[in-house]
Amino acid sequence: MTGTWWLDVLIGVVAAVLVTWLVLVVALVVVRPRGGLLREAMRLLPDVLRLVRRLAADRDLPRGVRVRLGLLLAYLAFPFDLVPDFIPVLGYADDAIVVTAVLRSVVRRAGIDAVRRHWPGTDDGFAVLARLTGLNRT
């Protein structure tokens, strides 16, 4: 009986990891951009990554915003995806969905002026970003 405790612990850890992964996948499905916005978000990804890096380096922004952006950059640099690429739709879009969700929270806290000041892309691209993040509702 005492020799199998490690098996119980291993099963518990694996179950916890699987449940956590499922919760994160469901969260991605819930917060994903609807309709053609997901495709536009993926197209904007290079400009959005430059925006995230610039915002994370801005010392005028609240520390919580910079921490969120730093964690986002770390997530994007991590070689493993939350959702494997072989899963339809979400497989290739998980990075765009995560970026969009984080930017929504950053926009609520940092405001439109900070995001606009650091936007490296075109005005059309910023309009898409505004729709994705809800900037146009602030």
Rank of each mutant, 00 (worst) to 15 (best):
L55W: 08
V99D: 00
L82P: 12
L90A: 08
V98R: 05
V48A: 15
Y75Q: 07
L69E: 04
A77V: 02
P88T: 03
Y92A: 13
R59L: 04
A77Y: 02
A93V: 00
L76I: 09
A74D: 09
A74I: 02
L76V: 10
D94K: 14
L55A: 10
L73H: 08
L103Q: 09
I112S: 11
A77Q: 06
V89L: 13
P84S: 01
P84W: 00
R68Y: 03
V102S: 03
L55S: 09
A101W: 12
F86E: 11
Y92C: 08
L103R: 08
V89S: 04
F78G: 11
I87D: 07
L51G: 01
V99K: 01
F78C: 13
V106R: 04
L72P: 03
L72W: 03
L76E: 06
R63D: 13
T100C: 04
P46C: 15
L55H: 08
P46M: 15
D113L: 11
V52M: 03
R59D: 15
R109S: 15
L61P: 07
F86W: 15
D95Y: 06
D58N: 12
R50I: 01
L44W: 14
V106A: 03
T100W: 06
R53W: 12
R66Q: 07
D81F: 06
V83L: 01
L55N: 12
D47E: 15
V89K: 12
L49D: 15
D60F: 07
A74P: 02
L49T: 10
R66D: 07
A57V: 09
A56F: 04
P88G: 05
P88N: 08
R63E: 14
Y92S: 14
G111P: 02
L61I: 06
A77R: 10
R68E: 14
F86D: 09
V83G: 02
D95C: 05
G64K: 11
V99H: 02
Y75L: 01
P84L: 00
F78M: 13
L73K: 14
V89M: 05
V98S: 00
Y92M: 14
D85A: 14
V107T: 15
R63V: 07
L103V: 07
V89C: 00
P88C: 02
D94R: 13
F86V: 09
S105V: 13
D85Q: 11
G64S: 13
F86C: 08
V48W: 07
F86A: 09
